[in-house]
Write a protein that binds this DNA or RNA. Structure first.
Lengths: 131, 131
DNA sequence: GGATAGTACGTTATATCATTACGCACGAAC
DNA sequence: GTTCGTGCGTAATGATATAACGTACTATCC
């Protein structure tokens, strides 16, 4: 069954959850958000997340084992993520150097399928606070 | 207790294991390698790995949940990892753009603590094989 | 219109990765 | 010789992810 959004029913539900919270959630946090619905088991969440990642609507944040909506503002083909260890916010960012690295690797014969750039530290707000 | 290498006893053992295999291992793979020694529980492995990471001797490969010796050849302050999905090899690589990204982020006020760049795909060998 | 292939589904069980909590042993600093 | 920091071992648990199974629906093809 396909919904308006061209996602399967479960993927559509999970998409909505991620849209509402607007930050990365783990699969089990998503599962918790969906208590009381027909989504009752981890595997249902993981399956839907796979679909969403394949269709480019969701990114996986490896270092958090979490999933976040793609913000669709990329200037580059792949975004990076800024993760603040203090306040926990995660922000997508672009840097043209990401594409440069990717093409240099391609030039060297490595066929890039996926590229993950994750930077953790202190965000601007938390840093100034921490004076 | 400290050994010659200035590592704790358990960290020293785990360092040796990683040195011998020369590829990333998960904590439980390390544990398995150490069957029959005094290292019997996951927590012992994770503790030692923390020490090794803190001292910069080991990197964590986030997308594999695995740990690998630092090859110490970095031209840049942080290496990237090339992960072949076909043969499973993992190769550390340098790209000056990594440092550039890091300094641009610093310039924008984000205090970088850790940066992880992981690229998966097909390595040169597997790619030519896959013709 | 029946066969068949593809895709998503739900359920159960299990595999894999990581940490918490506790108390003991030892050496350094005072 | 007491106190403190650090590493240790053991047990239990928490958190993340997948395997294996069969069912339901849709599209396509002959």
């Amino acid at each position: 069954m396909r919904t308006r959004s061209n996602l399967s029913a479960n993927a559509d539900e999970i998409f909505s959850v991620l849209q509402v919270v607007a930050r990365p959630l783990t699969a089990y946090q998503i599962l918790h958000e969906l208590e009381g619905t027909t989504i009752k088991a981890p595997v249902q969440v993981y399956r839907a997340l796979s679909q969403l990642m394949t269709s480019g609507k969701v990114h996986r944040v490896e270092s958090l084992n979490a999933f976040v909506l793609c913000d669709r503002h990329h200037a580059t083909s792949r975004p990076g993520f800024l993760i603040c260890k203090h306040c926990g916010t995660v922000q997508e960012f672009d840097d043209e150097a990401i594409d440069e690295i990717s093409s240099r690797l391609a030039g060297a014969g490595f066929e890039v399928e996926n590229l993950s750039l994750e930077v953790s530290g202190l965000c601007v707000a938390c840093r100034s606070e921490a004076v």
